[in-house]
Simulated scan of single mutants.
Amino acid sequence: MSFKIKRAAEWCAAFALAFALAGCSLLPKEEEALAPPLVKPANENYQTETAVKGTISIEVNGSGYFESDHTDMAQFTGQGGRVQEVLVHSGDTVKKGDVLVQLVMEDLDLQVKQQELTLEQAKYNLRKERAVQGNDEEVIRMAALQVEIEQLKFDRLTAQYNSKQLKANMDGQVIFVEDLHPGDYVDTYQTLVIVADTKKLRLTLNTDGMLAAREVNVGFPAEISLKVDGEKKTIEGKVVQTPSSAPQTLNKELAERYAKTLYIQVDDVPKGVEIGAMADVKITTQMKENVVKIPRSGLRNSLGRTFVRTLEEGSKVRELDVEAGLTSSTEVEIVHGLDEGDVVILQ
């Protein structure tokens, strides 16, 4: 029995070995790892500009609007009163002497008419006394004196009547009317209406936030571009008032306006330009010609150095120390260190 058991054990061992070898042949072969592909490093792409010779300038640019060079602020100067009627609106055209605002008359108009009648009666009596031959000179003198008295009364009543009417002092266009309603009370020297002379216009430019505007002085020329009836026109102007040359005023609102406004005189305003018309303004404060210049983004500053990076032979990068000059909003002058034609790498 021991022999049979031994043989059986040998057969089992042989069978297990054969099965193991067969199982290994059934498993898939492991693939060999592929080597990474060889990639050619890409050249770095630079944004560049070529240094050129040309003109560089510092300019003040903005949009302005036309306003009247001469305005009249209509105010009651004698006494105030209650508003009866406002007779104009903003945009209306008026003539000198037109009534703008009417105050409540009460019966003043009737008093004027009554006094006018009394004056005419006194004049009639004087003529009648003078017509009577041999009449006493004293009687004539008293009749003449009565005419003077009635005339004074009439003049004073008329002045009082006129003080209730606010009239235009010149021909022009109404550009402001105080918001008033019947019954509102108005004080003396309160600006109720502003009339502007439409024949004398100037251009105003708000410079709030424009640092370059500080360099603008009276007398600087201005280039003005505008559209008239759909056609673009370019005209010349001259700066006549700057924030630094503005007159002193106790009017706070006007002082604030003067502090941030340039006023430009335009001698030949095109026909059709009205108050409120817009225009583009360019004022050159500094200019240099025939200089080497590059975009501002090409100039670099680091640790006290001012330099540019140039590209040579298509791929070589070189740093050059330079001296910068006039700087505009987009360009910078290079005084030394860079030549015309050099290719500058932009930041």
Rank of each mutant, 00 (worst) to 15 (best):
G272Y: 06
P247H: 03
E289Q: 13
S245H: 00
P247C: 02
R202I: 12
L254T: 11
T207W: 00
L311D: 00
N251L: 01
A324D: 08
Y263E: 11
D267L: 14
K227H: 11
E289D: 12
T234L: 03
L201W: 04
T261L: 10
D229V: 07
L201D: 00
L326Y: 06
L262C: 12
K227L: 15
L326P: 06
P270H: 08
R257H: 02
P295L: 05
G276R: 00
P243I: 01
V322K: 00
Q241T: 11
K252A: 04
S297A: 14
K293M: 13
I224C: 07
T207V: 15
S245V: 05
K252P: 00
G325Y: 09
A222W: 03
Q286I: 09
D268C: 10
E319D: 11
A259E: 12
A324N: 08
D229F: 15
L326T: 08
A279G: 07
T207H: 06
S297W: 06
A259F: 10
T204E: 11
N290K: 11
K282M: 12
D321W: 09
A222F: 07
S225P: 05
V317I: 15
K293C: 06
M210N: 14
L311A: 03
T327M: 11
T207D: 04
V228S: 02
A255T: 01
S225C: 05
D268S: 15
I235F: 10
P295F: 01
V292T: 10
S225F: 01
K227E: 13
G219V: 04
S245D: 05
K233Y: 02
R318Q: 10
E253G: 02
S328N: 03
V240F: 10
G209E: 09
N217S: 13
V291S: 07
S302Q: 15
T284I: 14
E289W: 06
E323W: 08
E323M: 12
E253S: 12
T261S: 10
V218H: 03
L226F: 04
E253H: 04
V239K: 04
V308N: 02
R305T: 08
L205W: 03
E313Y: 15
V317D: 09
V291Q: 04
G325I: 08
A324P: 07
Q286A: 15
V317F: 12
Q265W: 09
K233N: 02
L320A: 02
R318F: 08
L262H: 09
Y258H: 09
S302N: 14
M210Y: 13
P221D: 08
A213I: 10
E253A: 12
E236F: 11
L326A: 13
K293I: 06
T261F: 02
I224A: 05
T249C: 07
G314W: 07
V292M: 01
L311C: 04
E319Q: 13
L303C: 10
S302G: 09
E253K: 10
D268Q: 14
G230I: 00
